Amino acid sequence: MGKGARRKGPGKGPKTGKRKVRDVFVARPFEGLAAEPELIALREFVPSATAPLPLKDAGDRTVTLASVLPVAAAAMVRGETGEILLGMQVQTRSSDVSRDLGRALRWALDAEPGQVLSVPDTTSEPQPGERLQDLLDPDAELEVELHSDFGWWLQDDAQATGEVAMSLERANAAIMPTERVRQGAYWTLTGEKAHLRWVWPADENKLLQALARLSAAGELSLGEGSRYAGSFRAHGLLVPVWDLDAEAHAREWSEPAEQLGARLDAALKSLDDEPLNAAERRARDGLIGRQLTLR
């Protein structure tokens, strides 16, 4: 044995243990789904809403997507009916939100009535067929139903008790009036201010250029009583935000939003043939300065 060499002692074999799962961040987890804008809205800023989940194959089970469940649970199965509720706003997440939701749904399909999944599985090795893209009809949109409180957590006039009762009280106290204006676009009243948050399923850079084109032309507002406030990124998409006259009802912004949507669609198409001019590039630089990122 050469100088400096050491003899291995008894039991000193190679290290063993649980293999670390490589967690690769997915920037746009709902890409490829027609429901992408609504999924992001329910995940990030819609307070109380439900929607039937358009699964490829759920058999005779009723599966409902929910903005948030009691105690921010990942999933639950109603004891009375066996209905599955899948929560969007949860306590923890991995680097792939779509996989988290797929795993929670798989758990619920095998669970017994009355069971609750507090947090999704975020540590197991990724497996084929686990993501929402594998489980949902990719062309189906969500039929979102908004609620003024969280009373839908309970069924058949049941009374909340314990932790659920406390969670229900806190959730109802924090809820803000919210209305759906169109796909991915939600009006919210926050005290003395109102806002429109609009999830657009378009490439971020292209959408930013289209917004800049409208801004340079003075066509970026929703009309009198509105002001473009900026945008934030959420799950790979850009979400423009407008400040609105709080005295106006949500339905009063439906037609202006439709008109703005048509202008924005036209601006997006025009980018293929006409790049931004100097004024539009300056407008784009100004819009970039008003961006945030949500993950």
Rank of each mutant, 00 (worst) to 15 (best):
A246H: 14
V181Y: 02
N172M: 12
V164L: 09
A246M: 07
L189S: 07
L237P: 03
E169S: 13
P240I: 13
Y186I: 00
E192W: 04
A165F: 03
A165Y: 04
W198D: 04
L244P: 02
A210N: 12
G218Y: 12
Q183W: 07
T161F: 05
Y228K: 09
S231C: 13
A173E: 09
L211Q: 15
L154I: 10
Q155D: 02
V181A: 03
G236C: 08
A212N: 01
A216E: 00
A216V: 00
G223N: 15
E179Q: 03
E224T: 14
A158R: 12
L238I: 15
A216Y: 00
S215I: 07
D149C: 03
L208S: 12
T161N: 07
W152T: 01
H249F: 13
R233M: 15
A248H: 12
A194H: 04
A210F: 08
L237E: 13
P201Q: 13
T178D: 03
L168M: 11
E179Y: 10
E179R: 05
E219H: 14
A212E: 00
L208V: 07
G162M: 10
G162H: 07
A210T: 05
A202P: 00
V199R: 04
A174P: 05
L237R: 14
W187H: 12
F150Y: 15
D149M: 01
D245V: 06
E224C: 08
A210L: 05
A217E: 15
H249L: 06
E163V: 06
G162E: 02
S221P: 04
R180S: 04
A173C: 06
A174E: 11
G225P: 04
A160D: 00
D156L: 05
L222I: 10
A210C: 06
E163D: 06
G151F: 00
S226L: 10
P201N: 07
A216C: 00
E179N: 05
G236W: 07
L154D: 02
A229V: 03
Q159P: 08
H195A: 04
I175P: 09
Y228H: 11
L214C: 07
Q159L: 14
E169T: 12
K193F: 08
A194D: 01
W198Y: 10
L222S: 05
A250P: 01
S167R: 13
S226P: 14
